[in-house]
Simulated scan of single mutants.
Amino acid sequence: MRALLWFLCLTLFAGALHAQERRASHCIALAESTDGLEYLQKASWQDPVSRDSVHIRYIAHASFLLRTEGGLNVVTDFTGFTGSAPLIPDAVTMNHAHETHWTAHPDPAIPHVLQGWGPAGTGAQHHLDLGEMLIRNVPTDIRNMFGGVEPLGNSIFVFEAAGLCIGHLGHLHHVPTPEQFAALGRLDVVMAAVDGGITLPLDQMLEVLGRLRSSVIIPMHWFTDYSLERFLARVGPEFSVVNEGNSTLTVSLRSLPSRPTIHVLRPRYLEAGE
């Protein structure tokens, strides 16, 4: 009984740490962009996050760490390994197209493990309110190993925090339907697979990015510099490109560029002592 009471106290305390008020986002409404591009590079992923901002760290392949002002940590396409730093995320999301996007054995200490698929192609539905961040998903289909289609086997996850809508397209295998685009709403920041074939051909991915009208696009799932450069060579003049060799950026509503910007991040695992 004493152990149960201790567990409940710890749970309530942890919840209070992240129970800060979330600034309302505008995913479903088009918002005005503000002029200027002011990304703040941090020396450590553990440094305090600026007010009304979200810190993004590219970890590997399709995994990103999203960190809020209150210290909430969320990892996308979690594989079970984020580096040598001792991190237990508050929540992780996963997709199961390949083992580089999920793990069958997440640490049981992680409070929220969100699978982007359901049993037998039934899809998943998530609407997780963590106080500072709301996590939701829009299911999409994926190809299976036999060349067929697994209905609703992938999820596009949307993270609403600091007034921003941040989307992770996951292992997207088709252009979303009008209904799926409507469910996503306006994404201020989007992580997009740009491998050019294992997920979507580049023409289709550029079509998706054009429809989303995101202010900041972060390429992922690009394997080599060659595939990354091939993507960058295909984007039109309507996109700006920032490629400074960094692994992190901090973004806020006030720093969103007025022109769609591809912000290249370099993957880097979280290191102990960083």
Rank of each mutant, 00 (worst) to 15 (best):
R57S: 14
Q46E: 15
H112P: 00
Y58A: 06
P108G: 11
P111D: 07
W45K: 08
H101G: 15
L40N: 10
V54K: 00
G116A: 10
G80Y: 10
R67E: 02
R51V: 12
G83Q: 12
R67D: 03
A97H: 13
L66C: 03
A91H: 06
Q41I: 14
Q41L: 13
H61T: 11
L66H: 09
V49D: 00
Y58V: 01
M94K: 06
T82L: 12
G70H: 15
V113H: 04
L72P: 00
P111F: 08
Y39V: 13
I88T: 14
I59Q: 08
W117V: 01
W45I: 08
W117N: 06
T82I: 15
D107L: 06
L87H: 02
I59H: 09
Y39N: 04
H105K: 14
H98T: 15
I56Y: 03
W45S: 08
D52H: 14
V113A: 10
H105S: 15
G121L: 05
G83A: 12
V92H: 02
I110G: 03
S63Q: 15
T68M: 11
E38Q: 10
V74I: 14
H61P: 00
G121E: 05
P89R: 07
T93W: 08
V92S: 03
G116D: 07
Y39H: 11
A62H: 03
P48G: 11
K42I: 02
Y58H: 08
W45L: 05
P111G: 06
L87P: 01
E38V: 01
G123Q: 05
F64Y: 15
G123T: 05
H112I: 00
F81A: 13
G118F: 06
P86H: 05
T79G: 04
H112C: 00
A97N: 08
L114P: 06
Q41C: 06
R51C: 06
Q46G: 01
L40S: 13
W102K: 02
G123L: 07
A60T: 07
P108T: 06
